[in-house]
């Protein structure tokens, strides 16, 4: 089956003097597949995700989103994207934000009336009357996930989706991913919560300094008797300079 998203030899840097933020990354995600993108801070995960969603232009390499360039609006019709640290027009309320995004998705009135209340209920924002500027980070994250699923995407990209969620919210997101996978939706999950990734993803790519260190099916990447966190730490430590991260004054006597 054709890949939903295909990334080939992708490179990106923000200024000429900077090192490559993304350096020759390639991978594919197929329908119904949950793909985990892992890496330490600054590994290039969010840059990759932003290039796939058409928000950033790659310096070289190619991206095919549903067979099209992600810069073309039609390519993003079946894409849902929940950004890391999401934000929305701050004077709007949650139903208005979803109605705004339904308009951008081209949903008709009947579909809006059906989907918006259900999506708000899923996000736990049904009775919420405050404007977005009064939302907590967790509420914004819930709204971010809500707008991402509103268009019934065939590819859902979740960038650190559970970072600001409480345990119940995390459970809901895990259940959502399971449901989406079962209905053939591809999921690209970018998360630091390795146990979560190990639980829901079929395939994983581990990045450091913009390069893919290891990629493959979860059972290929994680040998029997080990776990994803051990593999991740070993790979990343072997590929970037190590330093004692605890300040020396912490362990000084009499502190």
């Amino acid at each position: 089956m054709a890949a939903v998203v295909s990334v080939q030899n992708l490179r990106k840097r923000y200024r000429r003097r900077d090192p490559w933020a993304v350096d020759g990354v390639s991978f594919e995600v197929g329908p119904g597949e949950a793909f985990g993108l892992l890496g330490p801070n600054g590994a290039g995960k969010t840059s990759i995700v932003k290039m796939i969603t058409g928000l950033l232009r790659p310096d070289s390499g190619s991206i095919s989103l549903f067979g099209m360039n992600p810069g073309v609006p039609a390519a993003r019709t079946e894409l849902g994207f929940a950004p890391e640290d999401p934000d929305f027009p701050k004077f709007l309320r949650a139903p208005e934000v979803l109605d705004y995004f339904a308009g951008l998705l081209g949903l008709d009135d009947a579909e809006r009336k059906r989907r918006i209340p259900e999506t708000l209920a899923f996000a736990g924002l049904s009775g919420e009357r405050r404007q977005v500027r009064q939302f907590s980070k967790g509420m914004k994250q819930r709204l971010g996930i809500a707008q991402a699923i509103l268009g019934r995407p065939k590819l859902l990209i979740l960038d650190e989706p559970t970072a600001d969620l409480d345990p119940l919210g995390r459970r809901d997101v895990r259940a959502l991913i399971d449901r989406l996978k079962a209905s053939g939706v591809a999921v690209l999950l970018n998360s630091h919560l390795l146990s979560e990734v190990e639980r829901v993803c079929d395939t994983v790519a581990i990045l450091a300094r913009g390069r893919v260190l290891k990629e493959g099916a979860m059972d290929e990447v994680v040998p029997e008797g080990s776990n994803l966190e051990e593999v991740f730490v070993q790979l990343v430590e072997a590929n970037q300079p190590q330093h004692d991260s605890v300040p020396s004054f912490i362990s000084e006597p009499g502190a």
Partner: peptide, 11 residues
């Protein structure tokens, strides 16, 4: 604010 991230990822 970052609103554009969600808006521009739509079609």
């Amino acid at each position: 604010s970052g609103s554009a991230v969600a808006i521009f990822s739509k079609p």
